[in-house]
Design a protein around this nucleic acid. Structure first.
Lengths: 235, 235
DNA sequence: CCACAATTTTAGAGTGACTGCAATTTGGGT
DNA sequence: ACCCAAATTGCAGTCACTCTAAAATTGTGG
């Protein structure tokens, strides 16, 4: 008797509430749905909703919460001889091929992003989630490389990597939201990803270096904005 | 008559409300102060408070809002021949010497940070502020280097730099909050800053590279976590 | 000094998220 | 059938915030 009637019903109720809530959010937008409305639709009291979900935002996040530890897993499961950045680059490129939901590349992710963008509370929630991912990845990094507790490198590395994946995800979501179809987006996304991870690997170097006071020739104001040409390529 | 009685009173009222509010927040913590309380202490109605400040958090931020464009200014005012990262490195090191408030290095910044940390709403607010700084810096970067609108590099660079300064600021705040005095913190902070900006400049390279399957010698699990030895130095 | 209009402030009622408590229902074990 | 614990519920209350309409205040022109 691993799961009595009690626990099953509890799980079912929670799921039903979350599902119905998500349906309403998708249909009317997060801010245009009250918790009372969700409760009524799910045939429970408002208090029961708050019994399962601490806040209204939790009602939306629910599934996302799981994704907090995923970057840390990518790190831990990297292949022998593989650097941290290379692991994430590989993972992201694979994710493109599979339209992975983890980076918001799955079909319909733009609708999702639209709902979030329309609600300040949800935007704030996503930021918080990102921060949780960052601390999780930081811990995993510090743990694997047994860095000194004072070492800021793990935090910085985590922040940089997550910034990259976040931006790439946003880029994809943006183009999907503009109505473009996936075949049109994918190659560009792939290019952008390569560039972003290249930049991470090779560093900012003298990115955006301002022309010295006494410039040599006529190169004035139209310099190539890319700053990583002189970096060693390693593919 | 640049400023009539009307405008002066308005400005005064706004300032009085903000000041009194900040005093209460410092004394009792953000969440333990109601807007009604602030209004009563400032001798105005609750509606007047909301007339000047859109949200309760605005009552706290007020001054901080100004700091959104500061990173962009650092970029624009960098010296000839100076790369983006070096500009920020210089600015931050100068900020250490002057205990600049922009990075939360000023005396008493830890109290401030404590108040913020104790309130989820304020933490969320700070995150939002950081994001605003990021978009501002992104725009400035894209503008200066006239990057293509599709180019993710400016966003990524902005995110990386702001992550670095954010972490360094948090590091300082953490140690200040632990009761250490500034002379004890400063040299360490300087070291950490150098390291962080070095990492930014030289890139993550093969940071955290896992030992290949068939390792040559007895190097097992205790590798040097620094991964930028093989990067080219360009000073 | 006196209206008159624009602006600011205010009171009051209402919404919605969220909390705490006490009462009630429900499921499981005896 | 009986009892205990957990789940659910109703109810009252707090607080941030909105909306509307009624004062109070201030600048202006006669």
């Amino acid at each position: 008797m691993e799961e009595g009637l009690r626990e099953r019903k509890k799980r079912e109720t929670r799921q039903r509430i979350a599902d119905i809530a998500m349906g309403l959010f998708m249909a009317k937008g997060f801010d245009n749905v009250t918790v009372a409305e969700v409760a009524r639709a799910a045939d429970v009291s408002v208090n029961t909703v708050f019994n399962y979900f601490g806040t209204k935002e939790d009602l939306f996040a629910d599934r996302q919460e799981v994704a907090v530890d995923l970057p840390a897993r990518v790190l831990r499961e990297r292949e022998p001889g593989e650097s941290v950045v290379r692991a994430f680059r590989r993972d992201f490129l694979d994710a493109i091929a599979g339209r992975d939901w983890r980076y918001g590349l799955n079909q319909g992710a733009d609708v999702f992003a639209g709902i979030v963008a329309a609600s300040p509370a949800l935007v704030a929630r996503m930021r918080e989630l990102q921060e949780q991912r960052e601390t999780a990845l930081t811990r995993a990094l510090a743990d694997e490389l047994d860095a000194a507790p004072e070492d800021l490198a793990p935090r910085l590395v985590a922040a940089q990597i997550l910034a990259a994946t976040r931006l790439l995800g946003a880029y994809a979501a943006g183009r999907m939201g503009a109505g473009e179809d996936w075949p049109g987006i994918e190659p560009d996304l792939r290019t952008q990803a390569e560039r972003a991870f290249d930049l991470l690997e090779s560093g900012l170097g003298d990115y955006g270096r301002r022309a010295p006071a006494e410039a040599s020739g006529g190169d004035d104001g139209d310099g190539d904005p890319e700053g990583d040409e002189q970096q060693s390529e390693r593919h």
